[in-house]
């Protein structure tokens, strides 16, 4: 069982709320520079929180059980959807010109989070319940002790 599961879930909630806040931003403000600064700041926050969440989960990745992984993936789905909404809004926004670096960092964070979710599904759920793969792991272990 993952000892940090409560902390991980708190982090998930934080990221989801921040993604929702950024997604709800109107990207049509009148004052161009002010608008860019606001969006940049919000974007940096959700990027940093997402990166921190990914690092936290990676730190405990191999401890996460099948049931915990299923729970975390359920929490991940709305985050992934919101992050995608934000990204598409950024690409379509007239402010995109002043936000390339921030948008790219955000995209990388989103991509890292997607990859984490995929790895969790593969290793903590699918392969964890795959008898053939479990047999393969035993063969590796036997190889080491021959």
């Amino acid at each position: 069982m993952c000892t940090c599961i409560a902390e991980i879930k708190t982090s998930y909630t934080k990221v989801r709320k921040q993604a929702e806040e950024v997604a709800s931003q109107s990207f049509d403000m009148d004052d161009f520079l002010d608008a860019i600064n606001v969006v940049k700041k919000e974007l940096a926050r959700v990027t940093d929180e997402t990166n921190a969440l990914v690092e936290l989960v990676r730190d405990h990745f191999t401890e996460i059980t099948v049931d915990e992984a299923k729970e975390l993936l359920d929490l991940s789905e709305p985050i992934q959807k919101k992050m995608q909404v934000v990204y598409l809004k950024l690409l379509a926004s007239p402010f995109n010109v002043g936000l390339e670096t921030a948008t790219d960092h955000y995209r990388q964070a989103m991509s890292d989070f997607d990859e984490l979710c995929h790895d969790m599904k593969t290793f903590n759920i699918d392969l964890a319940q795959n008898d053939h793969f479990q047999q393969t792991l035993k063969k590796v272990s036997e190889m080491m002790h021959r």
């Binding site: 990745f61 191999t62 290793f123 792991l137 590796v140």
Partner: peptide, 12 residues
């Protein structure tokens, strides 16, 4: 490393 994805007995 934090990039570890599987641990089984004596290997990762």
């Amino acid at each position: 490393t934090n990039d570890r994805i599987k641990q089984f007995e004596d290997f990762r």
